[in-house]
Write a protein that binds this DNA or RNA. Structure first.
Lengths: 338, 338
DNA sequence: GCTGGCACTCGAAACGGCGGAGTGCCAGGC
DNA sequence: GCCTGGCACTCCGCCGTTTCGAGTGCCAGC
């Protein structure tokens, strides 16, 4: 177990390194923080911290920088979540309040997060799986062509075209629409399949293929959309990264372009606690020198999706965590209202 | 007017520079191209080309690189559009055929373009303004709450919530839905306003406020959506840029994050001819060392939106133009089918 | 267990010399 | 009149050397 002062030294190192982006030495440390001890003592502490793997030196006789393990300790034990100023909070609310639809909410959220944290922001669209059905609409575009529109309680709209072999009467369609809605409106998405299974049987045999087709498309939409969409913004902030540019930034940009990677980044954990993944804790190579701060958000008490930011491991964790948490809360509110 | 051979020299310089990314000298030129003259002659030609502003030297006694004006001449007079190989074309078709909805079409198109050209791809969503109405749907979510869903012939769906002061009967809603659709289905978006202006008058006075509200929202949706959406991909390809990295890439990334800039980039020209904007021809600072190749695409003979790529001025123009044109054509086909 | 002192290490920046690719110009040839 | 080979010159990029300074580890003393 590390002594109180050694933790303090680690904290100072993290803070200074985050600020200056340069390895920090013992002398500089004592000058900028009032630790009450001399550089020599700090050197001894540093030697211990290095032995334990919390800090490292880029090369012999240079200052120290925190390791992933060092950041982890800092985040777990020492870093609070820095609340935003009331001005910032007002700005968030104003900005999000102007949104006209779900797309707009997500787009604004991404820009907001990126601006606030000066990092790359990632926002997942509210998931269909965990949300519930607000309405199902069926439109006859042509005699044998139906459009299915699915509206969720998070304001998301999905549409699908269905080609039927035979024409479908308007009354049949209206009937199906009514029955379908009476069964599924208000239901969680995952609960829908068993509720509609027997629907075709109650229709005239001639119409059953069409009904079955509609149901199949509906269920398919479910499944397809568990593969969720994500919006990303603030890529220009990547240029704030290290100076050894191309090598650092390239793989990050590449990783960020892959939906799958992004989804995994936000984490599969369902709980709404904030997760911080630091450096190598990210499975994905190329994101080894980045950290991800993510949290769930939702209209009610349960998270329907996640959002977060991706930045260098050398980031201002308390500030970033504060911003992420605040934005998530406000987005949740907005969704609940609409 | 430049002699035939001098044009040939310019072409050779452009091609070599695009390939090697290094200033090209007279000796190297004669070795790699059979111009039939000696380096000394080429030097003379180069001096002339430089006087005319088509090429420049980064510093005295280095090779030459093309200027924006040089690229312009190259594109206008010498560069054909290089058709894709049949294998590439088959790949495009296969890839795009798998799309399930409009979002998916756009997303796939962006990835395809980025991969094909190894540059940043930009695809504009089919515009509401220039497309026509396929269906308008009105749903009563609550007694005094209506959802308006607008479906266009390009498969785009927009939805809006409308709060009415008083409850609206289901029959009234059905009536409005029917009349609205009979008037506007199949109409170009720009033609809609006059067609619905007198609708409220034919309803019971009690219902007129609600009807007016619906119409207002519909027309508003029109206007709002002339501010169009855009999708972007392949940002990682920016790392292929120059070696003097951060300075070059930073402003580009920033510019690409602004919807407005992107929209202007694609060009306001309505015609479907391909536009190539080179270096300083782009109004936007920060895009001064990039070129934009854009073209319209659409389901019919008229363009409903644009797509294109952004890359370094030093790009393979014939190849890029070929890829952009081919992708635009296939996307148009896909849209026409759905 | 903390401190001041000291010798040592090593990277970053500054310096200088060298080589080579490229140029401009000129005199001669087709 | 245009092309060509030759020549002197320029200047960037590379490389080895030197210097400088921040930082370290260790030790003896309080």
């Amino acid at each position: 177990m590390l002594s109180e002062r050694r933790l303090e030294v680690l904290r100072a190192i993290v803070q200074d390194y985050v600020g200056t982006e340069e390895p920090v030495g013992s002398k500089a440390l004592t000058e900028r923080h009032s630790l009450g001890v001399s550089p020599a003592t700090v050197r001894n502490d540093m030697a211990v911290l290095e032995d334990e793997g919390y800090i490292a030196q880029p090369h012999t006789s240079a200052g120290r920088i925190p390791t992933d393990k060092g950041y982890r300790l800092f985040v777990d034990k020492m870093a609070g979540v820095k609340p935003l100023s009331s001005a910032e909070r007002r700005a968030i609310q104003n900005f999000l309040d102007g949104a006209v639809d779900l797309d707009d909410v997500v787009a604004r959220t991404v820009r907001l997060l990126a601006q606030l944290t000066r990092q790359v922001a990632v926002v997942q669209y509210p998931s269909l799986t965990r949300s519930s059905v607000r309405h199902v609409e069926l439109l006859a575009l042509a005699p044998a062509r139906i459009m299915l529109v699915l509206i969720t309680d998070t304001g998301r709209v999905e549409q699908r075209l269905i080609d039927c072999q035979a024409p479908v009467g308007e009354t049949v369609l209206a009937d199906l629409r009514a029955r379908l809605n009476s069964r599924v409106v208000g239901r969680r998405f995952a609960d829908v399949p068993p509720l509609v299974q027997d629907l075709p049987e109650s229709f005239d045999p001639d119409d059953r293929p069409a009904v079955a087709g509609v149901l199949a498309t509906l269920l398919e939409t479910l499944v397809e959309q568990t593969e969720e969409r994500i919006m990303l913004g603030g890529a220009a902030n990547l240029t704030r990264f290290n100076h050894d540019f191309p090598l650092t930034i390239r793989p990050v940009l590449e990783a960020l372009e892959e939906q799958m990677v992004l989804l995994k980044l936000l984490g599969e954990a369902t709980d709404s606690a904030m997760t911080v993944r630091i450096g190598h804790e990210n499975f994905h190579e190329g994101l080894n020198s980045t950290s991800v701060v993510a949290v769930g958000y939702g209209s009610g008490d349960e998270a329907v999706a996640k959002l977060g930011v991706v930045g260098p491991t050398r980031m201002d964790y308390p500030g970033t965590m504060g911003a992420v948490r605040a934005v998530a809360r406000y987005v949740g509110q907005i969704l609940a209202e609409s």
